[in-house]
Design a protein around this nucleic acid. Structure first.
Lengths: 157, 157
DNA sequence: GTAGATGCAAATACTTTGCAAATGG
DNA sequence: CCATTTGCAAAGTATTTGCATCTAC
């Protein structure tokens, strides 16, 4: 009684839960997104999807990321440079991005205080908090006397 | 000995200080930018410039905002919606933006804590703080029991 | 006088869309 | 089956650029 089938990717599961029709193309794109640990733009998603299945067009990638964004499964990011970047929506623990201005690399970090602070700020301004966009730009320091890099989640593109 | 001439706009002064050649078009665009208290996109800057002087092309507006951004006189913003928005760089006291998700209106606010917090975060991650992009998205609350709206700077588009 | 700025239109870059053919539930 | 989705190419936006002409310094 074991289902002998290629494992459903995490994002594919979410698609099914949202009642989306799972075409071959969507399955591939969902898989690419599930396996990505960076912030690919559409062109890059298309490239990765093509390497898994050649019968995908870039228009479908555009349509799919738009759909998944509307469903709240994906989040669109803008790190400058014109093109939108995508990453899977995370449930509770939000993270933010530090962009290395010298090479464009992106480091994710968490900061529980930041959201707390901004929730209070929204409240004071008479608004209900919806979301927060927080991007830090910095240059890597040369000398590293401190070994600790707390809250660091990883470095990607 | 009084110079009888149309007052130099603040941004025009900055242009001169940066050694830019002051053409008629640049003077007009500088004036429009100096007088703006909102976050106009290129199309809007072009419209305002045209109303002061008809011999300006949109290409020049694009070229000028790019130049002024490179010189650090202007800052480019992205509030979603595809087009870049511009505002004059402020010296010391930075402000951030709260975007009303219902109507796209933008409210500026200050928060000394936010930058402090992010400077420390950058430091912990081994980076030298360069800048911070912070945008808050919210919905206006209905009932307003609190009269105080501290740090509020103004509401624009 | 001359390096640099401008206008115009064509080019680019990213994204969306119309339509006929293909397909998932 | 039939409502949806897809591919393709054309259309849309926002922005940049080549080139001849103009202009600030």
């Amino acid at each position: 009684m074991v289902k002998a089938q290629a494992a459903e990717s995490r994002i594919e599961q979410l698609c099914v839960e949202h009642g989306l029709k799972m075409t071959g193309q969507r399955r591939v794109i969902a898989r690419v997104l599930s396996e990505a640990d960076d912030h690919p733009d559409v062109e890059e998603l298309y490239r990765r999807a093509l390497s898994l299945d050649s019968r995908i067009s870039v228009a479908t990638v555009y349509r799919t990321v738009r759909l998944l964004e509307e469903k709240g499964i994906l989040e669109r990011r803008d790190f400058g440079g014109g093109r939108a970047r995508y990453e899977a929506t995370e449930h509770g623990h939000h993270h933010y991005h530090l962009i290395d201005v010298d090479n464009g690399r992106v480091i994710e970090f968490e900061d529980p205080e930041a959201e707390e602070l901004m929730r209070r700020m929204a409240d004071r301004l008479g608004f209900e908090f919806v979301s927060l966009r927080l991007e830090l730009f910095g240059k890597k320091k040369k000398q590293s006397a401190s070994a600790a890099t707390p809250h660091r989640k990883g470095e990607t593109t």
